[in-house]
Amino acid sequence: MTQPDRRGFLRTLVSAGPAAALAVGAAPAVGHAVETPEASGGAYAPRYFTAAEWRFLRAAADILIPADENGPGGAAVGIPEFIDGQMEMPYGHGKLWFMGGPFHPEVAPELGYQLDLVPRDIYRRGIGNFDAWCVKTHGRPFADLAVAEQTAAMHDLEAGRIVFADVPSATFFGFLLTNTKEGFFADPIHGGNKGMASWKMIGFPGVRADYMDWIDRPNTPYPYGPVSISGERA
């Protein structure tokens, strides 16, 4: 449960996976220390993702979870920050998984995940491949497309109509969607769900976790707003 590092303005890119070689023209900063626009404003500076990847994540978060009458969008609630934080956790490094070889990705899918890639690899390769496809198809990386084009591209990705070179596109989409929803719904202590926006949307009271007085009140609206682990109320 590490808090995102809000003090760091500069982040050095340590590990550029194979996808770095695929960096498209519109991703200028790969391989160099980058100052993001947010960082210069004193806000969050990504620790794992490059500037180009960060722009993708912010755009993708707003397509998967758009701002609408049911609440703010994915970027505003901190889903990119959540995913960036997860990349620095044991999860991002694949340390929660058995990663001993040999690897047999050709077996039946019902036997589960069999790639030798950890989430950090999947994001680096997946974002690189998806942005490359957007450039090739639409002339610009994902973050610079119009919302309608972004939505259509995401549908193409989900439906398996895009083939990636460095990671199965379905695997990348699966991680992106799963982690996006985790960031949307998890306690804000993990970096997403700012203002407990998702909890307010559905009416989940967070860490209140004591309903002794409510078990015997069937079909009655519950009146209290959510509380987070850090004690924030909304």
């Binding site: 956790m89 929660l96 036997l111 998890a186 306690d187 860490v207």
Partner: peptide
């Protein structure tokens, strides 16, 4: 410990109390 234990991501999703599969798991076939 309350309220830290009321953390769906840490417990249900990342499996804080489960076996560490990186050290030992099982293999499966049909």
């Amino acid at each position: 410990r309350y309220p830290q234990v009321i953390d769906e991501l840490a417990y249900s999703i990342r499996g804080k109390l489960y076996q560490d599969l990186s050290r030992e798991t099982v293999t499966v076939r049909h």
